[in-house]
């Protein structure tokens, strides 16, 4: 579990600026303190929470829930991956691993040592979760006091973390580089030309890249050795 917590630290730190920004925005969107706390506590999905704040004034609640569903379908793909690369979990571990799974905790877990154990996943997930909920509330109360230059620059934090997880794998493998480039290009094309909403776009770009590369590699090498 300690290893999970340690690997969860960059993620917890990366969440701080985003969570503070969420709390700040929630405050200015006239969510109450309790509603802000509750949303971070039981939804725990950054992109969806920001979207909900944006849509709150212009869309029906039904539409927001539907958009949230589509945006988070990608977690189905991630949960499936974790499920198939971990040792068997008991029901409580399944709930703590699944319900607190995020893009970030998935990325850390999936690029880390295998097979994934339940204590590792729980340590990793809970560390990120506590940071998210705590700093959403902090943002609600204090967000306005942050200097603007810092508010701006911390927007890069989670993206920098993704890069930090990707590059070490890229170094050892051209396949990994191709996987990332293809999905990045596809996702950019899909969203910039408004072909797909951002949730579907990430799913489509990722699946296409992951399957396409596997076909290529099956052609050019005999029994594949994985990444």
């Amino acid at each position: 579990m300690l290893k999970g917590i340690r690997d969860g630290l960059p993620l917890a730190i990366g969440y701080i600026p985003i969570a503070v920004a969420f709390g700040l925005l929630a405050n200015s969107t006239q969510l109450t303190f309790f509603q802000t706390f509750l949303m971070s506590g039981i939804v725990f999905a950054g992109a969806s929470q920001f979207m909900a704040l944006n849509l709150l004034m212009v869309s029906s609640h039904y539409e927001i829930v539907l958009a949230t569903f589509v945006l988070n379908l990608r977690h189905f793909m991630m949960a499936t991956t974790i499920r198939k690369t971990s040792e068997p979990f008991n029901p409580l571990s399944k709930i703590l691993t699944g319900s607190l799974l995020t893009d970030e905790s998935f990325s850390v877990a999936a690029t880390g040592p295998k097979p994934l154990t339940a204590p590792y996943m729980i340590g990793l997930n809970v560390t990120g979760y506590l940071s998210w909920v705590l700093f959403s509330v902090v943002g609600f109360v204090f967000g306005g006091f942050l200097p603007e230059s810092l508010q701006e620059s911390t927007g890069i934090a989670l993206y920098a973390m993704f890069v930090g997880l990707l590059i070490p794998a890229v170094k050892g493998s051209r396949k990994v580089l191709m996987l990332a480039i293809i999905s990045a290009v596809l996702n950019t094309v899909f969203t910039e030309f408004s072909l797909l909403s951002s949730g579907w776009s990430i799913i489509a770009g990722t699946l296409f890249s992951a399957i396409f590369i596997e076909f290529i590699y099956r052609k050019i090498q005999s029994p594949a050795g994985g990444v």
Binding site: S107, L166, A180, S183, N187, T191, I202, T206, E214, V227
Partner: peptide, 22 residues
């Protein structure tokens, strides 16, 4: 095995999509 490999590819593919264009 083919789908095992595809699942193994997903983390790296998704990192690309998460970074760009966001």
């Amino acid at each position: 095995p083919f789908w095992q490999n595809v699942l193994g590819n997903i983390p790296y593919a998704i990192l690309g999509a998460l970074v760009f264009p966001g």
